[in-house]
Nucleic acid binder design. Structure first.
Length: 576
DNA sequence: AATAGGTGCAACCGCCCGAAA
DNA sequence: TTTTCGGGCGGTTGCACCTAT
């Protein structure tokens, strides 16, 4: 074509030699030109491309991932919205080469996109089996059920919703959560809760809603948790008494995994704890029970992050959010019988919650609610109900052997750390918990398998804006609830909590543990061996049970506000 | 009718992880 | 042990649409 054009315009005799020379260069430049043309095409066909591409963050990881550094001098990888031309190229590539090996797309098709971008584009938009259009009512119900079971496991949910992508489901969910919150409606319809409840009552039927229950049974085999003492020595309950949930606020797993099954003993106490997500390194200090292998009171760490942090273990140490607490707009008394109104994931851009993050596994609680699970009634809770303090829906059974803690749930981490610690042949019981706070904090790093980046770097500020050092030092194991930093609503509560949580360090010495009066100081339990048959410290399970019950009753009696009592009484669900 | 603000949604980026090479 | 790759998920952005003023 080039030749004919030249001939037509200028005549062969003049340009033939020129053509011969040019063509050799053209051949050499073919690949380069191809990419240039693609780039130009993209720019032309999308008027606002440049703006979008240039806006905002510049990728580092993607550039690295795509090997941009190696492509210096070549066409830079494009970002931003895909054009029709790009889609066509990608489609052609997939048709020709099949899916996978996405990084080869650029190589073979000349598409100036990194492999990941190609994969996402294909998976979310170009896949032929994608179902376009609004989420149907049927799908919506399915999503609700799946979310109740799985939490924010969008990919898993998508696997059960043909034609829908994880991203689509996530977006839908987030939007729904926002909408329901504004409307003051429960995230999970009471009917769904009831249905799930009934479904479970009907037994161990194999079905979509009971599969995980059966998986959970696997966990029940793990009777002999050998949790190192230190794993729980800093564990304590802090809860906002004004945020007592109703039974309908109970996690589903509690409803039909524990509450209905009187056979559950506290062997199950931690059987189904799991992460709502894989904790990122920077979050591990907050999320991981690995933290508990240190002397850092894990749950206290949340106290100062009321607006910045999600509580992957919302059963403990609910932060006090003065805004929410004042407005009281999301309390259980707002909608009786509703499930966690804040449940679910929500964009941090939602103004009414500030930067509060809402990543929750199924039927988990936000910080506005989780503080007092199982303490919703003045009646004496069965020890079973203690489960409800700590449990969230199960995801998977725990293999008998260890799995990586970084992708696993809390229980897995507990077990993992337990084994790690046990296997280490070190005397890890209280590395020196009689030492000072700082010492404890310092030593903690020795046993903390998941040091954070800012730990390692001595970074003074955590990702939450809170001094990491202060996190480690502000809280003395068990013994420090700093009044100035307490999130509790009243000074009275502060005082009580302080009294409850102050144990002379001498008590923590092994030889003195027998002296602890657990009926008076049940919180001391959390510093001891909870599991297995560890009676090394003169504590058997019955003692633990009694003491734990005493703690809960004490807390619930003292902290349950009148309003909450009334609400609980009205719906009659608080006694379960 | 024009405008501003709120909302819903699609689409993308960034960080992280596990598996495989 | 390190690197690469595919994948998961949280978060963000921009735009279209709606509604109140």
């Amino acid at each position: 074509m080039l030749k004919s054009v030249i001939v037509d315009e200028h005549g062969i005799s003049v340009l033939e030699e020129v053509y011969e020379r040019i063509i050799t260069h053209v051949l050499n430049l073919e690949e380069f030109m191809k990419q240039c043309i693609l780039t130009v095409m993209s720019s032309v066909t999308s008027g606002d491309e440049n703006r979008k591409i240039s806006r905002g963050r510049r990728s580092s990881s993607l550039d690295e991932e795509a090997g941009v550094g190696d492509n210096m001098g070549e066409v830079p990888l494009k970002k931003g919205p895909w054009t029709a031309a790009e889609d066509a190229i990608l489609l052609e590539y997939v048709n020709k080469h099949g899916q996978g090996n996405w990084n080869a797309v650029q190589k073979y098709s000349g598409l100036a996109r990194c492999g990941k971008s190609c994969r996402l584009r294909w998976a979310n938009h170009l896949r032929p089996d994608l179902k376009k259009g609004a989420i149907t009512e049927e799908e919506e119900n399915r999503i609700l059920e799946l979310h109740a079971k799985m939490g924010n496991k969008w990919a898993r949910m998508a696997a059960e919703l043909p034609g829908r992508t994880d991203n689509e489901i996530k977006n839908y969910w987030n939007t729904r959560v926002k909408r329901m919150q504004r409307a003051g409606l429960p995230i999970y319809p009471p009917e769904l809760c009831q249905r799930l409840l009934n479904g479970n009552q009907e037994s161990q039927n194999v079905g979509p809603l009971t599969i995980e229950a059966s998986q959970q049974d696997d966990l029940s085999q793990m009777d002999n948790f050998d949790i190192p003492n230190e794993d729980f020595k800093t564990f304590k309950f802090l809860h906002d008494p004004s945020l007592e949930p109703s039974i309908f606020d109970m996690p589903e797993s509690n409803l039909f995994e524990q509450s209905l099954d009187p056979s559950h003993s506290y062997d199950y106490l931690f059987q189904s704890i799991y992460h709502s997500k894989r904790p990122r390194k920077s979050e591990m200090i907050y999320n991981s029970f690995g933290s508990c292998t240190s002397n850092v009171p894990l749950f206290d760490q949340y106290d100062n992050y009321s607006t910045e942090k999600i509580y992957d273990y919302p059963r403990f140490s609910p932060p006090f959010d003065p805004v929410l607490n004042t407005s009281n707009q999301f309390h259980g008394d707002n909608i009786n019988g509703s499930h966690a109104m804040l449940n679910g994931n929500i964009s941090s851009s939602v103004p009414e919650f500030g930067a509060m993050k809402m990543e929750l596994p199924s039927l988990q609680y936000t910080e506005t609610q989780h503080g007092s699970w199982g303490m919703s009634a003045s009646s004496l809770p069965r020890l079973d109900s203690v489960d409800t303090l700590i449990q969230s829906p199960p995801i998977e059974s725990i293999p008998s052997d260890l799995i990586s803690p970084q992708s696993s749930g809390l229980l897995e981490e507990i077990v993992y750390n337990s084994k790690m610690l046990r296997d280490s042949n070190n005397d890890l019981f209280c590395p020196d918990i009689t030492g000072t706070t700082n010492e404890a904090a310092g030593s903690s790093t020795l046993y903390h398998p998941f040091k954070t980046e800012w730990d390692e770097q001595g970074e003074p500020n955590s990702p939450l804006g809170q001094s990491a050092v202060s996190v480690l030092t502000d809280y003395t194991p068990i013994s420090s609830v700093d009044g100035s930093q307490s999130i509790e609503t009243t000074q009275d509560h502060d005082d009580k909590l302080e009294a409850l949580t102050q144990i002379p360090n001498s008590y923590m010495k092994k030889e003195n543990l027998e002296q602890i009066d657990f009926s008076q100081r049940p919180d001391a339990l959390f510093d001891l061996s909870w599991f297995g048959n560890d009676t090394e410290y003169g504590i058997n399970q019955f003692d633990l049970k009694d003491a734990l019950t005493a703690l809960i009753v004490e807390e619930s009696k003292g902290d349950l506000g009148e309003d909450d009592k009334g609400n609980l009484g009205e719906d009659g669900k608080g006694n379960q």
